[in-house]
Nucleic acid binder design. Structure first.
Lengths: 154, 154
DNA sequence: ACTCTATAATCAAGTTACTTGATAATCAAG
DNA sequence: CTTGATTATCAAGTAACTTGATTATAGAGT
């Protein structure tokens, strides 16, 4: 018999657990590919977004832009990414994840992605709507508070 | 009008978005507290678990145990954590997050925690059960595949 | 068209944090 | 009570990061 309060706690804990295990997964994969933590984080973002740029990656990894440049040098040399010119703004650089690298790392990711897809497919439309709504709102909270902290930093 | 396939994709994307924004939040908070990335990650785990040990923190941060020792030295010196002896095993050390440090960092976290709790409270029991179930199973996928990758590393 | 300011990425020098391998202490099994 | 495994630490060498300057480009205002 679960009270509402118990359920609420359970959801909060489950969300935290997910965060913890995402980090552990990223670490395991990074170690497998011979990458350090920041390189792993960088590729994590690129695997989701496909394409990015040094500024965004600096923000995501928490590095300075200087450190990001040398990190991207390493990833480029190792064949994980490619730098391309941004045709709309010649100051900017586009960072693409290489398809071969994507294949290697995605082959590690594909297993869990497949499992996720199967899990999701097992829910009804109504349930999926509830889940999507929750995740979106939950993420929105995180976004807003990140913004507040960053504002406060200036 | 959303097809089931669209909904499934939406959930998958929303989960990824949550992961991305958790990282950005952690970075913002770390910068606010004058911590580097690994120190921030360490405190993130301690804020959830309250108490841990060097081995677990090494795994979580992706550091070697050597690097973990010096990182904990820094966090201890800065007053964020305390080392205590494990009474059950004298080789082991317990790492506790300091209440003052918890207060400082929790005051940053408390805002988003409060928002999360309010959000969660706005759902019905039935909805919360669906959400908790989904998050737990989703996390289980991640755990299993982390384990597979780690097995494969030996 | 032409400054001026802002932004993007890079680079070079100095600093910090990490890895590796060794060591000490303790535990648990035989 | 010996042996092998585990936990944390330490010391030396290496790798990655920060800071501040530099180059190139963009966009706004005159």
């Amino acid at each position: 018999m679960n009270s509402k309060a118990d359920l609420e706690k359970e959801v909060l804990m489950a969300a935290a657990e997910y965060g913890i295990n995402s980090v552990l997964f990223r670490n395991a994969m990074g170690r497998k590919l011979g990458l350090n933590i920041t390189e792993s984080e960088c590729l994590s973002l690129l695997r989701i977004k496909g394409i990015s740029n040094p500024t965004e990656l600096a923000r995501y990894t928490g590095l300075t832009t200087g450190a990001t440049t040398t990190m991207l040098d390493r990833l480029e040399k190792a064949g994980f990414i490619t730098r391309k010119h941004n045709p709309n703004d010649r100051r900017r650089v586009l960072i693409e994840i290489n398809s071969e690298a994507a294949v290697t790392s995605v082959s590690l990711v594909s297993g869990v992605q497949k499992a996720h897809k199967e899990l999701i497919a097992s829910y009804s439309d109504t349930e999926l709507e509830i889940i999507a709504d929750f995740l979106t709102r939950f993420t929105q909270n995180v976004k807003e508070h990140t913004h507040m902290i960053e504002q406060d930093l200036r």
